[in-house]
Design a protein around this nucleic acid. Sequence first.
DNA 1: ACGAAGCCCTGCAAGC
DNA 2: TGCTTGCAGGGCTTCG
Length: 275
Amino acid sequence: MPELPEIETTRRGITPHLLGREIAAVVVREPRLRWPVPPDLGQRLGGGRIRSLDRRAKYLLIGVESVSGPGTLIVHLGMSGSLSIVCGEVAPRRHDHFELRLDDGVRLRLNDPRRFGSVHWTQAAAESHFLLRALGPEPLGPAFDGDYLYRRSRGRRAGVKSFIMDAGVVVGVGNIYASEALFRAGIRPGRPAGAVSRARYARLTETLRATLNEAIELGGTTLRDFVGGDGRPGYFRQSLAVYGRGGEACHACGASLRAARIGQRMTVWCPRCQR
DNA sequence: ACGAAGCCCTGCAAGC
DNA sequence: TGCTTGCAGGGCTTCG
């Protein structure tokens, strides 16, 4: 489900419901996520106050002033996870694994059928957590530009799509937006990353930023059941030029879009527009 | 260091 | 209708 725009949409949607509230209780219905949910989360978080909601890569960082000091709840939605705001007593649905109950009766629910998501709690600096430590720069941040991508890509023979989906290079770029940004930049996804020029990387950073920003503006991409924290679906799906359109006509030139696996992930591109 | 493959898990659609 | 198969928005881990 979620790439960076979907996480950001979720963060913006749930923030007004959480900020400043006290955590009354924690419910863990299914601890077997990508990593086991800590069994003592209830004791650690109970009575704590939510101070901040941030995002790093595809991780949601919930800053909590807990009874034993400040810490961060690190939530990842994996492939199929979603967070929703529930008011009062609402029967849990299948795959509702985790829940924060707030002092005003509102609940934050994590639903994740495939259980690739995770919940961690750390009282150390979040950026030093083992999940976040080795991450590359944010694509919408100042450290990300064409020169950076050009430098990092020298000598790399894997496809440029796999390269920009490598979280050690740049974070938050998943299968949808990698495909879309490469289409907009006119770069063939299978081209070796080390064989892309500096000028074309400059162009790619622009299209990546634009694609991600547009998707955030539209509330993300709803493919099956994604809804932002406010319950509304994302409308970026109508803007997809190549993702999920293998065999169909390119909107720009009419050529038949090609589809193939690159680095295990289905990839679609226009054989005429992308070189 | 890099890159490819395996694996974690459920749901859904397509094909027989 | 019911079964099997393959694929899905991610990413850590292992192996060469």
